[in-house]
Amino acid sequence: MLSELLILFTSSFVSATLFPGGSELLLIYYIKADPQHSWLYWLSASAGNSLGAIITYLLGYYINWGRDKAAYKYPKAWKYSCRYGVITLFFSWLPIIGDFLPLAAGWLRFSILPSTIAIIVGKALRYWLIVSSTLYLLPNLAA
C-alpha cells in the first residue's frame, strides 16, 4: 500500500511540472484495484500534484530565466494570469497551459499564500472529480 501511494505521489508530482505524466491513469488503476483506499489515493495524488505546482511557482518567483520566451510561447496563459491574477491558479490542472500558470504566477509575484491555496484547491478538486467519476460513473470498468 505504501509503495502505491509513493508511486502515485511521484507520478503526480512530475505531472505538475513541465514534464508530461500519467498520474490520472495511475490513480484510476489504483482505485479500481483497491476502492476502499480511494481517499488515500486522492490525498497522495493531490499532495504530489500540488507540491509540484507550488515548486514550479517558487521557481518562477525566485528565478526569472526564460520569462520572455515563455510569455511568447503561452500568450493566452500569460494574458489571463496578468488579467485575473491568483484566480487563474485554480485552473493549473488544465492540460497544456496548466503547467505554465504557476510559473507565470511566480514571475508575476502573486502573493504566496493565496497562490498556494488556489493551487491546492484546484488540484484537489480535479483529483476528487477523477476519483468520484471512477467510483460512481465507471464502476464496471475493469482494473
Rank of each mutant, 00 (worst) to 15 (best):
M1K: 13
S3N: 13
E4K: 14
S11A: 15
S11Y: 11
S12F: 04
S15F: 07
S15H: 00
A16W: 07
A16T: 08
F19R: 03
F19D: 04
P20W: 05
G22V: 10
E24I: 08
L25G: 15
L25Q: 11
I31F: 08
A33T: 14
A33S: 15
A33C: 12
P35A: 05
Q36V: 15
H37R: 14
H37W: 10
H37S: 13
Y41Q: 06
Y41L: 10
Y41S: 08
W42E: 01
L43E: 07
L43Y: 05
S44N: 07
S44G: 05
A45C: 12
A45V: 12
S46M: 02
A47G: 11
G48I: 00
G48Y: 03
N49W: 03
N49K: 04
N49D: 04
S50V: 07
G52P: 10
A53L: 01
I54G: 09
I55Q: 12
Y57W: 12
L58N: 09
L59H: 05
N64H: 08
W65F: 15
W65S: 13
G66A: 01
G66H: 07
D68T: 14
Y72P: 00
Y72R: 13
Y74K: 05
P75F: 04
K76P: 03
W78Y: 11
I87W: 10
I87N: 02
F91Y: 07
L94G: 06
F100Y: 11
P102V: 03
P102M: 02
A105N: 00
G106Q: 07
G106P: 07
W107M: 10
L108F: 13
R109D: 08
I112K: 11
P114A: 08
I117A: 02
A118E: 06
I119A: 01
I120C: 10
G122I: 01
G122E: 05
K123Q: 13
L125W: 08
L129W: 14
I130A: 02
I130Y: 06
I130T: 01
I130H: 03
V131R: 01
S132L: 12
Y136N: 14
L137K: 11
L137R: 13
P139V: 08
P139M: 09
N140A: 12
N140C: 03
N140P: 02
L141A: 12
